[in-house]
Design a protein around this nucleic acid. Sequence first.
RNA 1: GCGGGCGUAGUCUAGUGGUAGAACAGGAGCUUCCCAAGCUCCUAGCACGGGUUCGAUUCCCGUCGCCCGCACCA
Length: 504
Amino acid sequence: MASRYDDVMSLSVRRGFLWPAVDLYGGFSGFYDYGHLGARLKRKWEDLWTAHFLGLGDNYYLIDTTTILPEVSLKASGHVDHFTDILVTCTKCKESFRGDHLIEAVTHEEAEGLTTAEVDAKIRDLKIRCPKCKGELGPSRPFNMMFPVGVGPLGQDRAYLRPETAQGVFLNFKREFEALRRRLPMGLAIVGRAYRNEISPRQGAYRMREFLQAELQIFFDPATFGTTLPVDSVKGESLRVARGAEKHAPTANERTVADLIRDGLPAFYVYHMVLVQRFYLDRLRVPRERFRFAELDERERAFYNKVHFDVQVAQDSLGGFKEVGGVHYRTDHDLSGHALASGKDLSVPVADRKVLPHVLELSFGVDRNVWALLDLGYEVAGDRSVLHLPPSLAPVVVGLFPLLSKQGMPERAEALYRDLRPGFDAFYDETGSIGKRYARMDEVGTPYCVTVDHTTLGDGTVTLRERDTMGQVRVPGTSLAAILRDLLDGRREFRALGSPVSRP
RNA sequence: GCGGGCGUAGUCUAGUGGUAGAACAGGAGCUUCCCAAGCUCCUAGCACGGGUUCGAUUCCCGUCGCCCGCACCA
């Protein structure tokens, strides 16, 4: 019995969205490659994300930074120390545990950051045994989630593949602040790869060792940011949130912006939650009930976050609400860390004061979002399978077919294809029956199909078919480009295009 | 990493100690023509490595990978 996950993965592999990397040699756990449709879908998601989030501010820009970072910079960010877990394995039942957690459970004191020798000593002194089988615990060993890289001919310069794109922004903060003429708020975004040596990659594109992040870091003056935003204009807007323990249930509560601010969340933070929710509901067309913000408590949050809500989308292939992004209030953690370690003052002048800017991070996993689109969009009903992608994200926007492979119809259809090709992701097909061609387009999410038929030969009109409704209208072939552009940009509705063509 | 299950064309699968069939998909052709029609032909597979054996896709071991549970998840 194939699961929902298998169905989505099968579609992805068959049609060219994504599949396991290096599968010629049996695969490479935690790594996935994108095929021709997946790469285009991913690129369109990135473009949409970039347009939406850079549009949130006049001083928001995209930058691009290295994926390899020297140890000193990641030491300053806290990743060298905090991204390392000390693991202890039971010699009897082979179960592994985090050393600091074992010690904290007994002493109720913070034990994170201890060395392996210290953990071993504590375990011995406190006579800690395996919590599961009471067996004897083996020696502890460090495990860092970052991939080490030896730079230089002898590999003598210790470095790591970046575990998040954000550090590239912080390292370039001072340069950009000058280049952008010293203005706050300033937004710097990176869409790029990041790497984590996950112990156990799972669930396809959900937990990967190499993945693509889209992150926007907004630098601001904590004293004034909330008051400079049009928070009042969204006060009545409702957000879907699960706070504290609520996230363990597959639901969310509708809470107004005003409510959340009254509960103590910073106004600027809630304001940006609204903008993120709009991106998912309005732009990505995620059904409202499948979207929510899930709050992480102190124990679950990363070491640098003061307020943290996951952005989650409910996906049947992954068993419910799963993280696709996050809204993180990182305070001045990063800039102060880099200021301390580099010896450079990263505070900036604001009016007559010096301010170390705070950071609000809007962070998204691109691969997770692409998978969510496939999961949400894929529908199998009887013998028809349809991928309901938002038209603006569909890797193929329009299919062009001749009804018959004769009477000059292929030439007419191909001419239309040539006309549209420069401006649209168009696809021409004359093989098989017309129904089969529609079916193929439906399955890869193509929102519109155009067919040249007998009537076309007389008056130049063609049929335009909409994927989701299978409805057809007749439009002039010469207007196709303009009509498609309007449909994709949301300026026109398909049903408003004209009277439907009836079919037998 | 531990435990369990699994690995046969692109996909989904049948099957055997004597090297494999089907369906769907794909290609060519005929025919038909507005929602995966039909017919003919074709392409294509036992994850990888080792062992046992006259002979291994099948049995055994290892590796890799996938799924589930545990742990982990800045």
